[in-house]
Simulated assay, not measured.
Amino acid sequence: MFLIPFNKPSITGKEWAYIQDASKEGRLAADGKYTRKCQLFLEKMYGFKKTFLTHSCTHALEMAALLMDLHPGDEVILPSYTYVSTANAFVLRGCKLVFADSRSDYPGIDAGNLADLITDKTKVIVAVHYGGMACDMERLLAISQNHHLYLLEDAAAGIDGYYVYKNQAKRPIGTFGHFATFSFHETKNISCGEGGMLVINDTKFIEKANLVWNRGTNKKDFALGKANKYEWVSIGSAFAPSEINAAWLWAQLEQIEAIQASREKIWHWHKANLPILLEKFELEWMTVPKHAGNNFHLYYGLAKNLKHREQVLNFLKQKKILAVFHYQSLHSSPYYLTQNSKKLDLLQAKKYSEQLIRFPLFNNLDTNKLKRLLLN
């Protein structure tokens, strides 16, 4: 039993009321009032061209891969240090994964070495905004445009995250790529238990996206009277979530500013106190790149090596505090190695896989209690 869990989903107080309201509307299936409220809110707040709520960020990634009409043998460049969903979406289309290393200063993709990975078969670059911190988007955007490649932002943890230009102007994560994906999993800043969103910034894909989102049918046009038959016209799947999920999500989105303010306060508490409270372990503490606006999704430290990390995690466990490590690099995963005989040497990805420690961070975390446990 942990006295400080790693995560605890936030509840604003209106979630159940909105679910009951959705029930009274007589529609709990997909694409009802609350789905549209959430999508419109996010489009207006962040300037997304078009959004589609999905069951998960995994589904959003799979939907994006379908929209790009990828074929077996097409190559996709993505960071090795990412969640498996980033890779699975393209493996399901028969694509070849080309793994890139992370940066030395934070786990985002190293844009400086991408040019060497591009071939005549490359179709997509995936920018994973690790922990909600923006990748070097100006550089990635230039590379994708110069080589006529799709740019997909995997912003699973990136809601309310920003890219910061040298003149300090900010641009929301998810507005750079042809597509972007977000997660509303219970571990994210804004959540509905399980949920996600696909963002489409290239408007030529919106019509096709409506078909793919609706199991490959022309349901949207039929409902609007633009088609006289409801029929199968495209490949697709059941990507759209129920109104129950959307209603819960709407209660969260209404309070996004309060939730973010709470997380910001706790993040800064971690920054000021954890290095002192855990001084004996001599961890290297996270930094936020100058080009990334912090959305306060996570706080991490780096141990010296794998054995050292286990010592830190065990110490915290004894204090009844649950801290965790994060991704295991995909280029060294059992599945990838069974499919590829060539071993890759990605030093930074290996470093983060073996050394990174994530500390509890959720919007009602009791920092006084955390401090007492660490001092006890």
Rank of each mutant, 00 (worst) to 15 (best):
M133C: 09
L151H: 02
R93A: 10
Q39E: 15
I109P: 00
V91E: 13
L149A: 03
L114N: 01
L40F: 08
L70D: 05
R36A: 14
L67H: 05
G132N: 01
L28G: 12
E62N: 14
K37P: 04
A89N: 06
L61E: 10
E75H: 04
L117Q: 02
S80E: 06
D136A: 13
I77E: 03
V124Q: 04
M45Q: 14
V91I: 15
R36T: 09
L114C: 02
V128C: 10
S102Q: 07
Q39H: 07
K121A: 05
Y106I: 10
K49E: 14
A30L: 09
C57R: 12
S85I: 04
L70F: 01
R139C: 12
R36E: 12
V98K: 05
P107T: 02
V126M: 09
A157E: 11
T122F: 00
C135M: 06
L114G: 02
F48L: 06
G108P: 03
T51K: 04
H71G: 00
A30G: 15
L97C: 04
A155V: 05
D101T: 08
A115S: 12
A155H: 06
L141R: 11
D110F: 10
T122Y: 00
A115N: 11
F52T: 05
K33L: 14
G158Y: 07
R27L: 13
L28K: 13
G94P: 02
L117P: 00
H148A: 14
L53F: 08
A89V: 02
Y81S: 05
Y34E: 09
M137T: 06
M68C: 11
D110L: 10
A30Y: 15
L140W: 03
A29W: 14
G94S: 03
M133Y: 08
R103D: 11
R139K: 15
R139S: 14
K50G: 10
L149Y: 03
F99C: 07
A65D: 00
A29M: 13
S56Y: 05
F48S: 07
L140A: 04
A87N: 10
P107M: 04
L152D: 02
D120C: 09
C38R: 03
D136Y: 13
L117D: 00
E43A: 06
A100L: 04
M133G: 05
S80A: 14
G112L: 08
V76I: 14
Y81C: 05
E138K: 13
Y106Q: 14
L66V: 10
A157R: 09
F52H: 09
L92T: 07
D136M: 10
